[in-house]
Amino acid sequence: MEPLNEAAKWKDWFEVHGPSLLLCARQWTHSIADAEDVLQEAFVRYWRYQRHLPGNPRALLVTSIRRAACDQARGNFRRTAREGKSVEGTDGENSLFEHGINGDAERSREIENALERLPVDQREVLVLKVWNELTFEQIAQTLEVSANTAASRYRYALTALRKELKPIYHG
């Protein structure tokens, strides 16, 4: 991944990687609006103060997002109350994914619903690994667990999710 060195490039980078970071933020917040707030705070902090630090920018941002989400969870529940209804469901404008995996909107909704039902500790590892492309070491650092724990949670999550879904490519 190219480093974020030029101010003019933040928009391009944010457009490409922002969606997966927003998905990641959503795992630790109560609503899409909260996730957007957290992502905004983390990205601005990263861009201003941390972009010259060595290491994977996305791993840094994920750690920053998690901290911001923890701070927000401690202090701010206004949006959660306002969007209480949307927290429950995955339809409409609060869905986590672009509906239409290989043109199959129904399948993407199924996956999203199954994802919602996963235990949080498994779901967050899955999101960080699949959509944010972090290594197990980076996930372990972010979640403050061992790399082996992260790897086993990932395997449990994949297995559980697959069991719950009707297969389309496999039998």
Binding site: L23, S95, F97, E98, I101, N102, I111, L161
Partner: peptide, 8 residues
Amino acid sequence: ELKALAPR
């Protein structure tokens, strides 16, 4: 299959 699913 999951990787092919694009976040919003």
